[in-house]
């Protein structure tokens, strides 16, 4: 019986261990000889007795609780299909979104007919993975104020293995920009949604809780963009180019690193300069 090695790389078909005491997770399979083999090229990881091989690259593999950014591809029978860059489209049930007029209410036939008014094909949204299916698909939910339709910004896609999973995936960044880093490698950069102080006071006076207020259809499912100044637009593109620089240099992407690279990039007055490969490499070399 050999102890599996946790250093180095496994290639598909390589024997991991012949000891049956280990449990087999993702990236492994059992042959007819009941030994454990690797099925992808990657690094072996262990959680207690569970062995998994984490692949170097590949499509997004959904995990329960992941904060993701996706795009609606289909409006179906009481559910939406959402493209996340995984092997299968995710499904967002009509029952797992907050609709206007109260937080928790039964979804009526009217709601079903109006589905396209809430979310239609091509819309971007952020949501959380609620359940993962056997076939690689998953179910999403948007039952929180953090989630919902996205507007006022631009999408940036990077390989999903570059995203570091953190407690919060949305970050308020310098320059009035907010980044939502989806675990699936889709990053949404938008104008910060700082609430105006007078709005907050009126809310308290009304005696309504925040959840009910925010579930207002006009806010969650609004389609039109606010006015975005040229300055903010340029800052957003600067962040976009910074993220592309990180992706090109194969560096992990997370909130504090975005702040760091943004600060470093301010040496270059024009955001377009960040598209040059030498500049990208130079910026990434400066990071810790």
């Amino acid at each position: 019986m050999e102890e599996p090695s946790f250093s180095g790389l496994f290639t598909p078909g390589e024997l991991i261990t012949d000891d049956p005491m280990w449990m087999r997770g993702h990236g492994t399979y059992t042959g007819q000889d009941r030994k454990t083999y690797s099925s992808v090229a990657g690094k072996l990881q262990r959680v207690n007795k569970l062995l998994t091989v984490k692949q170097l690259n590949g499509r997004y593999d959904p995990l329960v609780g992941d904060h993701i950014v996706g795009r609606i591809t289909e409006v179906g029978n009481r559910k939406w299909s959402v493209e996340l860059g995984a092997t299968q489209d995710a499904s967002l049930q009509l029952g797992s979104v907050n609709l206007p007029g109260g937080v928790l209410r039964r979804k009526s036939d009217d709601d079903e007919l109006n589905m396209r008014e809430f979310l239609k094909e091509g819309d971007l949204l952020n949501a959380e993975v609620q359940m993962v299916y056997q076939d690689g698909g998953c179910a999403l939910h948007t039952r929180s104020l953090r989630y919902g339709k996205l507007r006022n910004g631009m999408l940036c896609t990077v390989p999903p293995n570059l995203i570091l999973r953190q407690v919060t995936q949305s970050h308020d960044l310098e320059g009035g920009v907010e980044a939502i880093i989806g675990a699936n490698g889709y990053i949404w950069l938008r104008q910060s949604q700082g609430q105006k102080p007078e709005q907050q006071t009126t809310r308290k006076a009304n005696g309504l809780n925040r959840l009910e207020q925010d579930s207002d259809a006009a806010l969650i499912f609004k389609d039109t963009n606010d006015e975005i100044s040229i300055q903010t637009r340029q800052t957003i593109s600067r962040y976009y180019n910074c993220i592309q620089a990180l992706a090109d240099c194969e560096m992990m992407i997370f909130g504090s690193r975005l702040r760091e690279i943004y600060e470093a990039s301010l040496v270059y007055a024009d955001a377009a300069e960040l598209l040059k490969i030498e500049v990208k490499q130079d910026l990434c070399r400066q990071l810790k």
Binding site: P12, G13, Y29, Y37, V40, A41, N57, R59
Partner: peptide, 10 residues
């Protein structure tokens, strides 16, 4: 392998 598709063997 580059696409990360699960294989029995190379």
């Amino acid at each position: 392998i580059n696409a990360g598709i699960v294989l029995h063997d190379m």
